[in-house]
Design a protein around this nucleic acid. Structure first.
Lengths: 121, 121
DNA sequence: CCGCATCCTTACTGATACTG
DNA sequence: CAGTATCAGTAAGGATGCGG
């Protein structure tokens, strides 16, 4: 998803793809979701997202920061204290995240028949 | 993505991730975008999305169909005539696509260098 | 506590050629 | 026209260990 698209071979200017490029990947949306209620520390984030590895958390955080969606705040103390928070641009993404969340939930109700209707394919 | 997530290892029930799984990948959103105005034939789709290969178009279409977002209509004639259209579930995704599109466009205005027209629009 | 470096595996994507 | 099959390259994601 971090794939760089050459302007020369930019077949489609679809802004949806732009959005996908930014919050694509397995962990970005979850991280953003966790940050919605305020700043969170690195290890707290790791604890909130059980399956994530430190590597992926670090990489995702860096990309999110690089894309201007989150802010990284380092406090020079021992032990180190670093927390992450949404930037204004990140805040602007909230409605989108909300819409995607709503649809994802709706989708599940439409495709997850408890046990009846074997059209599970 | 075609990635299958085991319920047992489902670390996060974030519905946003569900949505991302469904329209993740390089071509899905573009295809959905092309289908928004009505049914389109296979080759027409291929023509509307210059960079896509037949393979990726076929695979993406199959996944979209499998996920219930689009409908495949085969007319048994020579030459073969197959067209794809949004299903009601696909239609329900339109607002989400629109929100993502809006944000993507907004994001570009926020990150586009003022001094140059580097946005390959 | 926070993060980086290395290596490895898998998944996604693409080019090309062939078929009903 | 609308696919399918095979092959291969790249990049995303993960495991583990070290450093500030």
């Amino acid at each position: 998803m971090a794939k760089d698209i050459d302007p020369d071979s930019m077949h489609c200017n679809c802004p949806v793809t732009t959005t996908l490029e930014i919050l694509g990947g397995r962990w970005k949306p979850i991280i953003l979701y966790c940050l919605q209620d305020g700043p969170v520390r690195f290890n707290a984030l790791k604890r909130m997202i059980p399956g994530i590895t430190q590597r992926m958390l670090t990489l995702s955080l860096r990309e999110l920061e690089s894309d201007g969606l989150i802010l990284r705040h380092v406090r020079e103390v021992v032990p180190p204290h670093v927390d992450y928070a949404m930037s204004p641009l990140g805040e602007s993404l909230k409605p989108v995240l909300h819409a995607m969340s709503e649809w994802g939930a709706y989708y599940r109700t439409q495709t997850a028949p408890p046990q009846a209707t074997s059209d599970a394919a």
